[in-house]
Simulated scan of single mutants.
Amino acid sequence: MMNVSIKEKLSGVFPPIMTPFENEKVSYDKLADNIKKYNETNLRGYMPLGSNGEFRSLTDDESLKIIETIAKNRTADKVLMVGTGRESASATIEFTKKAADKGAEFASVLAPHYFINAMTDEALIKFFLIIADHSPIPVLVYNAPKFAAGLTISPKVIEVLSKHSNIVGMKDTSTEDIAIYINAVDKNEEFHVLAGSINKFYTGLLAGAVGGILSMANYLPELCNRLYEFYLADDKEQGEKYHNYLCDLNKKTGGKSGVAGVKAAMDVLGYFGGCPRIPLLPVDEEEKNAIRIFLESEGLLA
């Protein structure tokens, strides 16, 4: 990807890659198979070790092997962004360096939250700036209150962080209006916002976001890409209709049951989802069959 700008690398659709397990063990072979199938799509790249990837349930050794597996099996046009956040700056820096050595091109860092009452704007700014100073790869801020004990990163934090040359963007999975983060950034800064859900994707693009990291792209990547193409074509009428269609589709498939629902939808559509790792439980057969019936009724099963 010589001479490709940061913005170009981040523009488009990324699935937050699911971690496949068989009998509680990571199945690297199944992961490689999924990546090879995704390589045939127009996805911009891959983001393993996020909340959908059950990163909290993985050891560092497993995590590094996941990065290595994806790096070895992706095609050259696919960008590799990796979740590297830990509760301390030093642990995050250490793991980010290891991730970069395995092929990660960007680090997505979830805000620390165990000591949530101490996570002031000042503390968060210092955390991310220290990481950016020492990271060998560009950093993105991951704003996900649902997975961070309710911590929502403020626009003020983003305004400050966006001025650091090695902090190049954010993934927003909050319930906040994504535009408040886009508008917090000076237009001259190399900082790009990505939507963290299908519900925010199209509206985010219209507000100035450059792409999305979408769980739905794990099982219906080409449909997510099609919505992005409507945006690129400036076809607002079709874009709005397709946005509403995909949001409804998501509610009735993988979006109903989180990680387990996404994995079930992947199984139905020819990818390997499998079971999540305990303590997460899989969906029952009744729900999985309901997903299959609905997808068939929509003409999405071959």
Rank of each mutant, 00 (worst) to 15 (best):
K126T: 14
V262C: 04
S5C: 10
G150P: 01
K30T: 00
P20Y: 00
T19C: 10
L58E: 10
L223N: 05
K65P: 07
T59Q: 03
N3C: 05
Y228V: 05
A107K: 02
P155K: 02
R86I: 00
Y38W: 15
L232T: 01
S215P: 07
L214A: 04
A148Y: 02
I17R: 03
G273C: 02
I6T: 15
G150D: 09
F21E: 01
D248L: 14
Y242I: 11
N73G: 13
D284H: 08
L269I: 07
N3W: 04
I178G: 00
I131C: 12
H243L: 05
K97L: 09
R56P: 05
E287G: 06
N52T: 13
E240F: 11
Y181M: 03
A123E: 12
A148N: 08
A209I: 08
R56C: 13
E68F: 00
Y271Q: 06
A217S: 14
K256S: 09
H164A: 06
M81H: 00
V79I: 15
R226W: 00
K163V: 04
P276E: 05
N117G: 13
K156F: 13
G273M: 03
P112D: 08
L300K: 10
A91E: 14
A184F: 04
I125M: 08
T59R: 09
E285A: 14
K241P: 01
D121G: 02
K200V: 01
P276C: 11
E298A: 09
L124H: 05
I178P: 02
P15C: 11
Y181N: 01
E62N: 08
I153A: 05
L58K: 08
P279D: 13
Y228A: 11
H192T: 11
I17V: 15
L140T: 06
D29F: 07
S257P: 00
Y242L: 14
G150N: 06
A118C: 14
V262R: 01
G270V: 08
T96S: 12
M2H: 13
M1D: 12
L232M: 04
I130A: 12
D121C: 13
Y231K: 10
P15D: 06
L206Q: 13
K97N: 12
P15L: 11
A148H: 04
T203A: 02
M81P: 01
V259S: 03
Y219N: 03
S257E: 13
G53K: 03
D284Y: 12
L43K: 10
L124P: 03
F294C: 09
N34A: 09
S162C: 01
L110D: 00
T175P: 00
L194G: 02
T69P: 06
I137T: 12
V185G: 01
I137C: 06
G299Y: 09
I137A: 11
M266S: 10
F128M: 12
T92N: 02
T19A: 06
D172R: 00
I116R: 09
K36Q: 14
Y271G: 02
